[in-house]
Each structure stands twice: as structure tokens, then as C-alpha cells.
């Protein structure tokens, strides 16, 4: 009698424990991995951001999320995604590159940019000039980069999104000069590119060329990249020169629907990008010298950003599609301006 009760009780206890374990196992979501395909200079940003987001997501949902990163020139990255790189999200340098993923790859809808606030750009940046300490060549503005004897470092607009911002910023400045028109802008930008001895594939490569390899007199750089270079690689060795006019760069972000759908990561991918807009996400961006969108965070970090008069791609160039066709398509203005060896 006692033995039967003990056996029955043991079975009941075992069934209870198994049931609880089973329920718990069912309730705990499986770990998930995301691939964030990003442009070149965002390595440090996403290293910090990913840790923060993973902790936030785990606390919120109990799910472990691992984010893998891929970095490179924005245009090259976009082509890789179109060719099959399994990106759950893309965080690229310009909207045109994500438009290409939508149009040529069919991996996300054409109206992707309206799915997140601020045209899917959680932060902005601009283009500045980084010079060596003491500014030995007296660089003050874009026109100085076109002078003989000035060596300019900038990446290749064919592969780098940052390089396209650089080019358009210089072009926009040239248009604003007295008597400025397309012909004079082409001449000035042409002289600028004649002064470029090394054309890296991406913005980070150009930073390496200028800062670590000691090549060139001036680096045309993402503002965040220039400020980071000063803080991390050359305190006291470099100076930022804010040109009189620059361009408002709005690096966008998007979920790659087809890939995230296939991986079952749509929800966490969406949350990953939405977190960029939260105060915590905006703080991380600001700490890495990206201009935050949230007014409160922007006010807090205002002092670290130089005052620059900004124009937009839409205002000056009629949007990215037109800018690409006019300047960066095969045989377009950049190919006419930059002919290596000539």
C-alpha cells in the first residue's frame, strides 16, 4: 500500500516536473541570429549598439539574439546583398543603395523608406575635412582641395556611399560659388579628383590611408569618421575643418523582408531598427558622433558637432536617382572627371 502510494506519487511528481519543463521549453524562444550589412565606418557604432540591443531584447522577450556584422563600401554591400548575401537588415550610407536592393533584388518593397521615421534615417551626418595638426596647407574650404600641390584623400564613389556624399558636397559648394554652374563645378571637382593619389573602396579605407599610412594633406570624411579619428587615432594630430557648405547625409536603415521572412527574424529585425530611434539608441549614435534625430539627445551633444551650413540631395540634385544617373552611372560625370593614369 505504502509502496504503491510512493510509486504513484513519484510518477505524479515526475509528470508535473516534465510538464513544467516542457511548458518552459515551449515558452522560451529559440536563440536567433541577425546579419546587419552596413557601410564602412559604422563598425564601432554597431559594436556598442548590438550589445545594448541584445541586452534589451533579452530582458524584454527572454530571447537571445546575436547580431553579426558585415562592413564595406555601401554600393559594394548593396551589390553583395542583391547577389545573395543573407542580410536580415541593411544599414547603408544612402537610400539609393537600398533602392537598388529593392529594385534589382526584389528583397524588400519599393516604399521601404516610409516604414520608419525620418525616411528611415535614425541619425544623420555630414561631410567635413580632416587636416593634419596646424593645417600646414591652409585648407579652409572646398576650393582649396582643387589647388595644385594639395593631396586629397577620398574613397571611390563607384563603391563607397560616403564617397558619393563627398563628391556631391564638393559639387554643391562649387555650384554656390559666384558664377557657379555645371561646367564650373565639373572643372573644380575635376581638379579636386586630380589631386587624389589613392582611391580606396570605402570610407574606412580612406581613413586608414590618411591617418595610419600618413598619405595626403586632407581627408574628405564623414563627420563621424573625422571626429572618431581625432578621438581614437590622433588626439592632437589632426583638426577638423568645417567647410562653408556641406551636404546633409541621411544614412538609412531597412529590414530585408525576403531574407528576414525566410529566417523567421522579421520581428526581431524590426525591433532592432526601431531601437535606433529610442533615447538609448540615439545616445549610442551620438557618442559615436552621428547627429541624433531626437531633439533632447541632439541638444545634449550639440557642442561636439561643428556648425555647418547644409544642403540636401533633393534640393540640389533632384534626389538620389537623378544624382546617380547624372554623376555615378557608367559613363556619367564621375567617369568623365576621373580617368586614372591621365
Amino acid at each position: 500500500m505504502r509502496t504503491r502510494s510512493a510509486v504513484t506519487g513519484s510518477f505524479a511528481l515526475f509528470a508535473f516536473v516534465a510538464g513544467v519543463a516542457g511548458a518552459a521549453a515551449q515558452g522560451t524562444p529559440k536563440p536567433v541570429t541577425l546579419l546587419n550589412v552596413s557601410y564602412d565606418p559604422t563598425r564601432e557604432l554597431y559594436e556598442d549598439y548590438n550589445k545594448q540591443f541584445a541586452a534589451y531584447w533579452k530582458a524584454k522577450t527572454g530571447q537571445e539574439v546575436t547580431i553579426r556584422q558585415s562592413h564595406g563600401g555601401s554600393g559594394k554591400q548593396a551589390r553583395s546583398v542583391i547577389d545573395g548575401l543573407q542580410a536580415d537588415v541593411v544599414t547603408l550610407a544612402l537610400a539609393y543603395d537600398i533602392d537598388q536592393i529593392a529594385e534589382k533584388g526584389g528583397l524588400l518593397p519599393a516604399d521601404w523608406q516610409s516604414r520608419l521615421p525620418n525616411n528611415s534615417s535614425p541619425y544623420t551626418s555630414t561631410i567635413v575635412l580632416l587636416v593634419r595638426k596646424g593645417n600646414p596647407k591652409g585648407i579652409k574650404d572646398w576650393g582649396d582641395l582643387a589647388k595644385p600641390g594639395v593631396s586629397v584623400i577620398t574613397p571611390n564613389p563607384k563603391t563607397s556611399g560616403g564617397a558619393r556624399w563627398n563628391y556631391l558636397a564638393a559639387w554643391a559648394w562649387a555650384l554656390r560659388q559666384p558664377g557657379g554652374n555645371e561646367a564650373s563645378a565639373k572643372a573644380i571637382v575635376g581638379k579636386l579628383y586630380k589631386n587624389v593619389p589613392v582611391l580606396d573602396a570605402g570610407a574606412r579605407g580612406s581613413t586608414t590611408t590618411f591617418v595610419e599610412r600618413g598619405i595626403g594633406d586632407v581627408l574628405i570624411a564623414w563627420e563621424n569618421e573625422a571626429l572618431l579619428a581625432i578621438r581614437e587615432l590622433g588626439p592632437g594630430k589632426f583638426e577638423v575643418v568645417a567647410p562653408s557648405l556641406s551636404i546633409l547625409a541621411e544614412p538609412p536603415v531597412a529590414v530585408v523582408d525576403k531574407v528576414a521572412g525566410k529566417h523567421g527574424t522579421k520581428a526581431v529585425a524590426q525591433a532592432y531598427l526601431e531601437y535606433l530611434y529610442t533615447p538609448e539608441g540615439q545616445e549610442i549614435a551620438a557618442r559615436h558622433f552621428y547627429r541624433p534625430r531626437l531633439a533632447a539627445v541632439a541638444a545634449k551633444y550639440e557642442a561636439q558637432f561643428p556648425k555647418v551650413s547644409l544642403v540636401t540631395v533633393d534640393d540640389v540634385f533632384g534626389g538620389w536617382k537623378k544624382a546617380h544617373a547624372t554623376h555615378f552611372a557608367d559613363g556619367a560625370l564621375f567617369d568623365q572627371i576621373y580617368q586614372p593614369g591621365r
Binding site: 593631396s151 593619389p197 589613392v198 580606396d200 573602396a201 579605407g205 590611408t209 599610412r213 600618413g214 598619405i215 595626403g216
Partner: peptide, 17 residues
Amino acid sequence: DQQVRILQRLRELAADS
């Protein structure tokens, strides 16, 4: 010095390519 650095960097980029 700059020319030497440039040549070295171009060679480095070519190797990466």
C-alpha cells in the same frame, strides 16, 4: 616620402583586391 607611401598603399589595395 609621400610618393613612397602612396605606392605602398596602392600595392596594399591591389593585394586586397
